[in-house]
């Protein structure tokens, strides 16, 4: 049984100092599925990449612990080695670098076995409906949105982390792909106790990936937490409606939206 605990996490965008996360608290245990919902600009993606240690964000305070060990301050690859994984919303194309090449480097670097890596990849590919050719070319190169997300899920399955953050894994997915990906993630939560933080804009994902807990992120804070009924409430009221009910004034972190060069200057 493992616990990922985020406490009072504050972070800014390194490039412009925008204050995006303003005290996020979350606690996820092995085998649990948590959904984190929020409008565009609320800080959802910032949270996933701050947890993973992206240089694009600067931590200003708080802590992130995995079974009591502080992750903040560790380089990204060591966070991964401790058991954290982010399925990216926009997986980057890396020409000439095949899945097996870097997964082997990752597993070897963490002192784990690569003995049956090819067989594991082939088995997972079959299970996720990933054609063999996607394993043989540069990762994500000219993949469709659906293919990218299946490949992210495949890597999640092979790396078998303790906790997975799924950053808008439902974006760009058709219904079939969404179902395949959700079934695979669900199986991992049940079979090996994977803890999941599923970040999404839409309730659609949550009908496939049934969450134990739902959190709403607005203005860089978790403003509401509850059971699956919270997602249903959001469906009815929308983010604006929920914000009004909760008395939340800023639904997005104010400086995270770039200045609009075409805005009326007001004179």
């Amino acid at each position: 049984m493992s616990t990922l605990k985020v406490a009072g996490l504050r972070a800014t965008i390194a490039a412009n100092g925008a204050d995006v996360l303003r005290g996020v608290d979350l606690e996820i245990n092995s085998g649990e599925v948590h959904a984190l919902m929020g409008p565009n600009g609320s800080g959802k993606s910032t949270l996933s990449h701050t947890l993973m240690g992206s240089a694009e964000y600067e931590v200003q305070g708080g802590s992130v612990t995995l079974d009591g060990e502080e992750l903040l301050g560790l380089p990204t690859y060591q966070r991964a080695a401790r058991g954290l994984f982010v399925a990216m919303q926009y997986p980057v194309e890396i020409p000439g670098v095949r899945l097996a090449d870097f997964l082997e480097a990752a597993l070897t670097g963490a002192g784990r076995s690569t003995d049956d890596l090819d067989a594991r990849l082939a088995a997972e590919a079959e299970r996720l409906g990933v054609a063999d050719r996607f394993l043989r070319r540069g990762v994500n190169v000219e993949f469709s949105g659906g293919e990218q997300k299946r490949l992210e899920t495949l890597q999640l399955a092979v790396l078998a982390p303790k906790f997975a953050i799924l950053d808008e894994i439902d974006s760009g997915l058709d219904v079939d792909a969404l179902r395949d990906v959700s079934r695979r993630v669900e199986a991992m939560t049940q079979e090996r106790g994977l803890g999941v933080l599923a970040i999404t804009h839409y309730a659609r994902l949550l009908t496939e990936l049934r969450p134990d807990r739902v959190h709403v992120l607005m203005g860089g804070r978790v403003v509401a937490s509850g059971g699956p009924e919270l997602a249903e409430q959001l469906e009815r009221t929308g983010y604006e409606g929920l914000a009004a009910e909760l008395g939340v004034e800023e639904t997005i972190a104010p400086a995270s939206v770039p200045d609009d060069p075409f805005a009326d200057p007001g004179f």
Binding site: Y77, A80, M88, V92, V97, A105, A106, A110
Partner: peptide, 10 residues
């Protein structure tokens, strides 16, 4: 960053 997020050293 993508590769490092999978556990690959820099």
């Amino acid at each position: 960053y993508y590769l490092e997020s999978r556990g690959v050293s820099p």
